[in-house]
């Protein structure tokens, strides 16, 4: 299997859609990291570096969108959703503008830079804004297809990408608002998003050996939530889990709990970052430390079944 970073797909897809002269791309001095630099190399006249001024970048994105351009603006997830939050709210979402905000280096897997740079509440911040649609692709392929879809559909969008290479395994088409069942299962269901889905799939494989059958759903659009797929996947299993490289507060886990709580009340267990900040370390060490190991996910599911 190949390992590729989702941020690389962002850069590649931007070059692909860049033939559309209505697209402009902005970055805040991180274009080589977010990979928007690929677009800059191909279409320098439609790339604008705004410098280390993320809030200004987001408002400038709004200005371009008000003039009819399709705007892609990127920075680290922690900055574009946190530092620039007010611009995202006041200028992008309040005016419902056709802007794609790409937050790269999301989650703890950014690793050694430490907790200051690890976005763990970006999904919750973006999800709570009216008009904002939130996309967290599972892998390189899905990210690439997502960017093509975001080009064709009207924003605002928040697209979350990662620095680290991760398993590139999806083959399905991407459609905004559509979740994908990656494998069926009758005992438990994991709703997951982002590259950590790899761990959910591996945990499910482990549990196969013990005759525990686990369904894994790739919820790559967190908002609007694919409520049909979530409902149908949840209704026949007794044990429901969510998995995300994000705080358990406000992200995918919350979205699933909110929907099922009102429509199909069941016990749901959220696996994610337990209301604490990250720290420095390799991404592999951090995944273990914060409970994302395949063993931990598998044991949580097993324990839940045993406790039943």
């Amino acid at each position: 299997m190949e390992y590729k970073a989702t941020r690389d797909a962002y850069g590649k897809a931007l070059v692909e859609i860049g033939i559309d002269k209505n697209i402009v791309v902005l970055d805040a001095d991180l274009s080589s990291s977010t990979k928007s630099a690929e677009f800059r190399k191909a279409y320098p006249e439609r790339f604008f570096n705004i410098g280390i001024a993320e809030l200004n970048m987001v408002d400038i994105a709004a200005g371009f969108a008000l003039e009819g351009f399709k705007v892609f603006a990127s920075s680290f997830a922690v900055f574009i959703t946190g530092r620039a939050f007010e611009g995202v709210r006041q200028s992008i979402c309040y005016q419902n503008l056709d802007v794609v905000l790409c937050g790269s280096h999301a989650g703890i897997s950014v690793g050694e830079d430490g907790g200051s740079h690890q976005a763990i509440c970006d999904i919750s911040l973006m999800r709570s804004l009216p008009n904002m649609q939130v996309i967290v692709p599972a892998d390189y392929n899905e990210t690439y297809r997502a960017v093509l879809a975001l080009h064709k559909n009207k924003g605002p969008f928040y697209l979350r990408t990662s620095r680290e290479k991760s398993l590139n395994f999806t083959t399905h088409d991407f459609e905004i608002g559509k979740a994908h069942i990656l494998r069926q299962g009758i005992h438990a269901c994991i709703f997951a998003c982002g590259p950590v889905i790899e761990f959910a799939l591996k945990a499910a494989q482990e549990l196969d050996k013990e005759k525990i059958s686990v369904c894994v759903v790739d919820v790559s659009t967190i908002k609007p939530l694919d409520t049909d797929t979530v409902y149908n996947s949840a209704k026949n299993v007794g044990h429901i889990f969510t998995l995300e490289e994000h705080s358990i507060i406000g992200g995918l886990g919350s979205a699933i709990c909110e929907f099922l709580g009102e429509n199909l009340p069941k016990r749901i267990k959220r696996i994610g970052i337990n209301d604490k900040f990250g720290q420095s370390g390799t991404s592999a060490d951090l995944f273990c430390e914060y409970g994302f190991s395949v063993e931990n996910i598998a044991s949580k599911i097993k324990k839940s079944l045993e406790d039943d």
Binding site: V24, E45, R46, N56, D59, A62, G63, E67, F69, E86
Partner: peptide
């Protein structure tokens, strides 16, 4: 925010 948006609009009009 208005000024930053105006800068974006001015850039867009130049483009």
């Amino acid at each position: 925010h208005g000024l930053s948006q105006a800068v974006g609009m001015a850039l867009a009009l130049k483009l």
